[in-house]
Simulated assay, not measured.
Amino acid sequence: MAQSSRSIRRALACLAFAGLAVAQTPARAEDTGAWQSVKKAGVLRCGAAVAPPYVMRDPKTGEYSGFFSDLCRNFGQNVLKVKVEFVDTTWDNIVAGLQSDKWDVSMALNQTPEREKAVSFSAPATDYNVSFVYNKHNPKVPQGAHAIADIDKPGVTVAVMSGTAQDKVISATFKQARIMRLPGNDETRLALMSKRADLLADANITNMLLTEAHPDWAATVQPTPPLAQQQVAFAVRKETPAADIALLNDYVGAQVKSGAVDKLIKTSVQAMLVANK
């Protein structure tokens, strides 16, 4: 009888321990969530590759602006209640750096099938397509061009930021023109303005900044139909829990629905135009 009582007590103890382990499992899973880890660290790290007006960086102060920078800053400060740190990177490394935990979110990524294999995306903040800015006095580019065939010709050079969505698009689309891949936005603009390149391939919003800042010479080829119509969003690591992505989606969706994103875009565009004067 005593042996039986001891057996019962041991069994109850095992059950109690198992129950405790089960009860603690959700807490451990929550602790390993992306935003829970960010809260523990006290900082949200935003991977930042420059692409005005999405992401801009003041070369003198190092401060970040642009509407995606503002969205990331607001999400960290107002939703997660943490500090926000911008981590400088390039478009060639924007996905790899996220995968290797150098930052928590990547800003302003085009949602492409190739990238969807490597990272997960938030709800889109805005749309994107590729346009081409050129000097309207350049005889190589016909006035009123609206088809790729009008500009994809031998002897034509197209400048583009290396590793960007537009780089991949024109690499697959252009067959005759020469593609000049450069590391950043400043370098591509300089190539066009110095006439080393005949066209600058970039996001439609980014190119709008250039044409509005230089109406005396800059014009745009906007392909018909739109080239590479895509959505632009935040990216997070592939293993990010669905609940964490849902929280980010709720935030982005609310910003879009309220018109806050449109206001941020206009503010970023105006700031860029003032800076270029």
Rank of each mutant, 00 (worst) to 15 (best):
P241S: 11
F75D: 03
T157F: 00
R28A: 12
D216Q: 11
Q24V: 11
P154L: 12
V169I: 09
E116R: 15
V256S: 11
R115I: 00
G155D: 08
P124F: 09
A172E: 08
D104Y: 04
N204S: 13
F234Q: 04
A219Y: 12
P183E: 01
Q111P: 06
V95Q: 11
T206R: 11
V269L: 12
V105M: 10
S171N: 04
G62K: 06
N207F: 02
A21R: 05
P183C: 10
V221I: 06
V105A: 02
R45E: 04
P124I: 08
N129L: 05
N204E: 13
V232C: 11
Q230I: 00
A213S: 10
V158L: 06
F132P: 15
A48G: 01
N135E: 02
Q111C: 13
L71Y: 05
A149Y: 00
R189I: 14
V50N: 00
K277Y: 04
A233R: 06
R28H: 14
M1H: 08
P124D: 02
W217K: 02
D250A: 14
V95E: 09
L273C: 04
V141E: 15
Q255Y: 00
W103R: 13
T211L: 03
P183R: 05
Y54K: 08
N249H: 05
V119H: 00
Y251V: 10
S194R: 15
N249S: 06
M1I: 12
L273S: 03
A34D: 07
R189D: 07
P226M: 04
T164C: 01
N185W: 12
M272C: 14
R237H: 14
